[in-house]
Design a protein around this nucleic acid. Structure first.
Lengths: 235, 235
DNA sequence: GCATACCAACTTGTATACAAACAGGTGTGC
DNA sequence: GCACACCTGTTTGTATACAAGTTGGTATGC
């Protein structure tokens, strides 16, 4: 009765949604760019209907805005916005750590985390892209281990929204090493139920990642603007 | 019914969204009910297009589900889900209190709150419905006073989702009195920057409200099922 | 040369038409 | 009486047609 198939492939709207999102992520659609539904529909080889569905989803996730009968716009970069998301992320993850520390037995998720991150240096991964995704999963799994699926869902949304700037964090080996070091240290504190210590370390970890990203983002955005041959728009 | 001015919002989809949501809230659409887009479109006197837009929004907010080419369904009541939302709410609000306590000067929002809630008994409101909305605003303003608009937005979403069961809290005078008492006490603690105490009180306040709602919800749902002549579905 | 009014092209919002797939009933073969 | 195939109506997914409003350019008046 409930075993309905979920055919993702037959859903044009989903595909367009994903495509548009990655266009935004990869700066093929620049912050501030304006476009119309017809334009997208033509480029995607579809009609306006699924395009609109995709755009409404992106709008709700605050990637784009609709101007009344006057086209759509990729939301301009708003650093305050990302700062706020980082803050909420920190709050949720610290709360998750607290919940985990209140559990008597390790949840399977926690054990998985330990297996992944508490490894000798020789077994550590080095690829930036891979590690970027793995880092995302570390923080997500931490929240999942707390056992509140709605909290995990909200945190997952935050992660999605932050990915556009966060993946810039793993471009240099020092940050990669630091990540392994900090993650394993946090997990160890959790394992010994040192709640306060774990939270402090987690907060510091997020903060240092955030600082790194702050610097790189500005640079990247500037680069992208230059390559696209567009002038900086500062009025 | 409600003599609201028709705002000529020019947005049919929005109106349909609001209407459907209140249909769900008032149990005109029962949890588990199945319906089709045409059915809704006909009842609303509109075409399927804006109806679909409204339904997709409600789906994203997890009020309804779409079954592949087989109609829509009002999401069945899931008490674990509401419990989880309450948890996240508590986490966010406690974090907000912490942020507020770290501010040196009172934000205007905080002063507003004090003006509303720290009043002599004679000036207190008594109407359950009014107070229900006012209570929502208390918690929302608390988060807004912390100064993180994204956190406030997420909290606002939680509030929306919890309203369906939360408004059942203010049906009895004792809870009304207790609410005034607890809110003013929390605000006082915040004003004196007693962070820990404020958080503990807030947590207890939410918890007692939650307990009250837990009891009433079960009863209400049962009533609604009886009146609609439907059998309980406990698989 | 400048300001303003108007028009035409374009944009989103809504309605309708068509396609694909599922569900449930019905008839047929045994 | 029962099982199974088929057919028909209903459902969502997608495309297209139409309506209403905005925008930007152009022509005209001064």
């Amino acid at each position: 009765m409930k075993a309905h198939k979920e055919k993702k492939s037959s859903n044009l709207a989903d595909r367009i949604y994903q495509q548009l999102k990655s266009d935004i992520f990869d700066f093929r659609l620049m912050p501030g760019d304006r476009f119309s539904e017809n334009e997208i529909a033509e480029r995607m080889g579809a009609s306006r209907t699924p395009v609109r569905e995709a755009l409404f989803r992106l709008q709700r996730e605050s990637y784009v805005d609709v101007l009344f009968r006057s086209g759509w716009q990729v939301k301009p970069f708003d650093f305050d916005y990302f700062e706020e998301l980082y803050d909420v992320r920190t709050i949720l993850e610290c709360a998750a750590v607290r919940k985990i520390c209140e559990q008597e037995n390790n949840s399977p998720k926690l054990d998985d985390l330990i297996r992944i991150w508490c490894v000798p240096e020789s077994e550590r991964l080095e690829d930036g892209n891979t590690l970027s995704r793995l880092d995302e999963r570390f923080h997500e799994m931490l929240v999942e281990a707390a056992g509140n699926t709605e909290m995990a869902r909200i945190h997952h949304d935050l992660t999605e929204r932050l990915r556009i700037i966060r993946r810039l964090d793993f471009t240099k080996p020092p940050r990669i090493d630091a990540t392994y070091q900090e993650h394993s240290s946090i997990l160890e504190a959790i394992q010994h139920r040192r709640c306060e210590q774990a939270q402090i370390q987690l907060r510091a970890h997020i903060e240092s990642s955030r600082n790194e990203v702050r610097k790189i983002t500005l640079h990247m955005l500037h680069e992208a603007r230059m390559h696209s041959g567009k002038a900086d728009n500062d009025d």
